[in-house]
């Protein structure tokens, strides 16, 4: 009984929470990242991350999708890279291997902290548990080839939908 009652309540909470996050992002934008809801029900957002300077991803912009369950923030959002990316911890479908999006998710994280974590992961991959083994290997062995593959795979956001 209590549970069925709390379902709609949970949706109201997630909407309120996402509204608040949107307000924070609009009023205090963080350089290098953007995020905005796709539609008015706010459960799907599109975000962008600028590649950090002095990394193979410098001057590149990456587009991501973020999907929020009704139980957010008590479960992690589902985050996917929409821009094709060559990186040890992201696979070719854009799936992400990052502990804070899995079992280490905490309700105190938010959209901004997730995007900042992904941004720092671009420059500091976790090569111990790669999704993309080739990238993990080349990261240390052959930075030039790594950079070439990053650029070969990358597409500018405006070309994505075409």
């Amino acid at each position: 009984m209590a549970l069925s009652n709390s379902r709609p309540n949970g949706n109201a909470t997630v909407a309120a929470r996402l509204q608040k996050e949107l307000m924070d992002i609009m009023t205090k934008p963080t350089p290098g990242i953007t995020a905005f809801p796709d539609d008015e029900n706010m459960t799907v957002w599109t975000a962008t991350i600028d590649g950090p300077a002095e990394t193979p991803y410098a001057d590149l912009v990456f587009k991501l999708s973020m999907e929020f369950a009704p139980t957010y923030p008590y479960v992690a959002p589902t985050v996917l890279f929409k821009t094709p990316i060559f990186h040890p911890n992201f696979d070719f479908s854009g799936r992400i291997c990052l502990d804070i999006l899995k079992d280490k998710w905490s309700a105190i994280y938010n959209i901004t902290t997730v995007l900042l974590s992904l941004q720092s992961l671009l420059g500091e991959p976790n090569n111990a548990s790669p999704l993309n083994g080739q990238a993990a290997e080349l990261w240390d062995k052959d930075p030039a080839e790594y950079k070439r593959l990053v650029l070969a795979r990358h597409k500018a956001p405006e070309d994505l939908d075409a």
């Binding site: 549970l3 709390s6 309540n9 949970g10 109201a12 909470t13 139980t71 008590y74 309700a107």
Partner: peptide, 18 residues
């Protein structure tokens, strides 16, 4: 009732964990 409301009780649980 508060502790049987998923949203309210999870907020309280999150707070005590913090």
């Amino acid at each position: 009732q508060t502790f049987n409301d998923t949203s309210e009780s999870m907020a309280i649980i999150t707070y005590v964990k913090l």
